[in-house]
């Protein structure tokens, strides 16, 4: 509290914005410009950039529209983290600077650069199209606009939070896999796909899911949680990704894709031994040929270092595995009962 009062009395601070610059017409490569302005308490990063554009350097280019955290235009990286410039307080950012007093401002990652802080959003729109990120209504054409679907609170709750997404692309920029491969579906599109797939008004669930389980789809997520952590609307994106996988296993079976097989292997091993049988995991996920081709050279090195996981017979079961197994199977019965109940509904 005293700190707040001190800041209030202090009123203003000199802040340097180190801003990423790139104009494809003249620059062969990007560089940084430093702008030092006097920033009062309560000012946002976006307002600071507006000030710089109006008073210091009119060529500085960035997108901004609603300036109130709902349109998603001003996604950029501030001190290395993707967020909205319009809802980021300069004085908060000052506490996060690597170099004291210098706030770094850079464009979002993993989308093509256009100019300065502006990146191309078309790849994201293309993916929304590829993964049918819309409701294909089951309402007969003749009844459109005349009847309502009845939607339970329970169903509404499933997608309520997901519909908060403003497509600011912060998660896209932070995604680990997208950085490694631009073809990857991307977190925002997975979130939207999930939102459509749990909506009972929609009629193309199976089609959408079939697309999602293909290469560069839902199984490529590496569970790094960066999307969720950077979401400006605090949407639990990983829960949506997990829900798509759960749905894929249930709707398409555990032998559907390498991702599904991999996930299912954990279930098998835990039931059998209480421990993961790592040695055969690659084979069970991708088959013998893939394993020999991809992992043999490395396996040789590991054998030399005695780092290879033990073959299945040598994997010691957890102590007391028998009673554990009985309990595990009892839970399997519970799950079966749950399914029967939900199908009856």
């Amino acid at each position: 509290m005293t700190e707040i009062i001190d800041q209030h009395q202090e009123g203003k601070r000199d802040v340097t914005f180190r801003v990423f610059r790139f104009n494809p017409q003249v620059d062969s490569k990007p560089y940084f410009d430093d702008y030092t302005i006097s920033a009062e308490r309560g000012i946002t990063v976006l307002r600071s950039l507006n000030y710089i554009k109006e008073h210091v350097d009119a060529t500085l280019s960035f997108r901004a529209f609603c300036q109130a955290g709902i349109c998603g235009s001003c996604g950029m990286r501030v001190n290395g983290i993707s967020k909205l410039a319009c809802t980021s307080q300069v004085w908060d950012e000052l506490d996060k600077c690597r170099e004291p007093g210098i706030i770094r401002v850079e464009p979002l990652r993993s989308l093509p650069m256009i100019k300065d802080l502006i990146v191309d959003m078309d790849p994201l729109v293309d993916k929304m199209t590829r993964y049918s990120n819309w409701i294909d209504s089951t309402m007969p054409l003749a009844d459109m606009g005349k009847k309502e679907f009845l939607i339970s609170e329970e169903e509404f709750q499933q997608y309520d939070k997901a519909t908060d997404c403003i497509l600011c692309a912060s998660c896209v920029s932070e995604c680990s896999i997208l950085r490694a491969n631009k073809e990857y579906v991307s977190p925002a599109v997975l979130l939207k796909s999930y939102r459509m797939n749990v909506d009972s008004r929609d009629g193309i669930h199976d089609l959408r899911l079939a697309e999602l389980v293909k290469d560069h789809g839902v199984w490529d997520c590496t569970h790094c949680y960066r999307c969720q952590e950077s979401c400006v609307k605090s949407i639990p994106i990983m829960e949506a990704i997990h829900a798509i996988r759960e749905d894929a296993l249930e709707s398409r079976g555990p032998r559907d894709t390498s991702g599904a097989k991999h996930a299912e292997a954990f279930m098998e091993d835990i039931e059998k031994k209480g421990k993961l049988v790592e040695a055969t995991l690659p084979i069970r996920t991708n088959g013998v040929v893939w394993t020999l081709r991809n992992l043999l050279p490395m396996a040789m090195k590991m054998i030399v270092k005695r780092r290879t996981p033990p073959p299945p017979p040598l994997v010691k079961s957890a102590k007391g595995i028998k009673i554990f197994r009985a309990m595990f199977r009892e839970m399997t019965e519970h799950v079966k009962q749950d399914h029967l109940k939900s199908h009856k509904k």
Binding site: I177, N181, T222, P282
Partner: peptide
């Protein structure tokens, strides 16, 4: 994702 998307 080592076993599912190794290159990535």
């Amino acid at each position: 994702t080592l076993l599912v998307a190794e290159e990535e």
